[in-house]
């Protein structure tokens, strides 16, 4: 499953991140800021905080990961690493998948650290089945990071690339965001059945990951 080229890319990305912690620290602090800003803007208490918590968590993750996604390829431009990667004989899909896995791990670690703060700030008691969050959040994060890495590669050689990434990623991500928010909210409040939304997320992940893998070489070698 995991080829050698993919493993090499993955280990390289993880090692760079472990040494610098650039993406990690900026994401963690940014998502913390979003959580605090939302709680000031909406003054959450009681039932209301449960209703909006799923949305706040998803949107905080979304905004925060954009900073990491922008870094993902910008890092490779320095010293023309990206050109070396283009010339490498291994398929681009392996590079893509390695980058998605690396960034998926970063965002997941941020979510795990953020979760306790989140529960404290919003006074949450999970009314539904909490273990389902362990399915919903990774599926949503995968949808975000998979598409994000793809579109970051797509916008890397354009003007305003950091802005453009958000402009093209967010509209495409809307159905996954909706599913993530509805599923999380229904788990937190205990109302309704999240299984339909989990299926939608799963379908979204399968469709877009497949298409990204198929089209990544086209984007990566576009000239």
């Amino acid at each position: 499953m995991m080829t050698r080229a993919m493993w090499t890319h993955l280990v390289k990305d993880l090692r760079i991140e472990l040494r610098s912690l650039d993406a990690f620290v900026s994401m963690l602090f940014f998502s913390l800021l979003v959580v605090v800003l939302f709680s000031i803007a909406f003054d959450p208490h009681g039932e209301f905080s449960r209703d909006i918590a799923g949305g706040v968590l998803s949107v905080a993750t979304m905004f925060a990961s954009v900073s990491a996604l922008n870094q993902a390829w910008a890092r490779e431009i320095r010293h023309n690493v990206i050109d070396a990667q283009r010339m490498a004989p291994s398929p681009g899909a392996e590079l893509f998948l390695a980058k998605v896995i690396a960034n998926f791990l970063f965002v997941t670690v941020v979510q795990v650290i953020l979760a306790p703060f989140f529960l404290i700030f919003y006074n949450l008691h999970i009314a539904g089945q909490a273990w389902l969050l362990a399915i919903v959040l990774p599926l949503g994060t995968w949808a975000l990071v998979g598409n994000g890495i793809f579109f970051a590669a797509l916008s890397i050689r354009t003007r305003n690339r950091e802005l453009l990434l958000s402009l093209i990623l967010f509209p495409i991500f809307i159905p996954a965001l909706l599913a993530m928010v509805r599923a999380t909210t229904s788990i937190l409040t205990g109302d309704g059945d999240p299984s339909l939304w989990i299926k939608l997320l799963l379908g979204y992940d399968i469709i877009f990951t497949t298409v990204s893998l198929l089209l990544f070489d086209v984007v990566f070698h576009a000239e």
């Binding site: 598409n147 354009t158 305003n160 453009l164 402009l167 984007v219 000239e223």
Partner: peptide, 26 residues
């Protein structure tokens, strides 16, 4: 349309075509 505006050079057509397919899938 914004991508077509911001991307420059010959690769814009390829990038736009890929985004067009993603958008239609969505």
């Amino acid at each position: 349309l914004l991508l077509r505006r911001f991307a420059a050079g010959p690769q814009v057509q390829t990038l736009a075509a890929v985004l067009g397919i993603f958008g239609a899938l969505d």
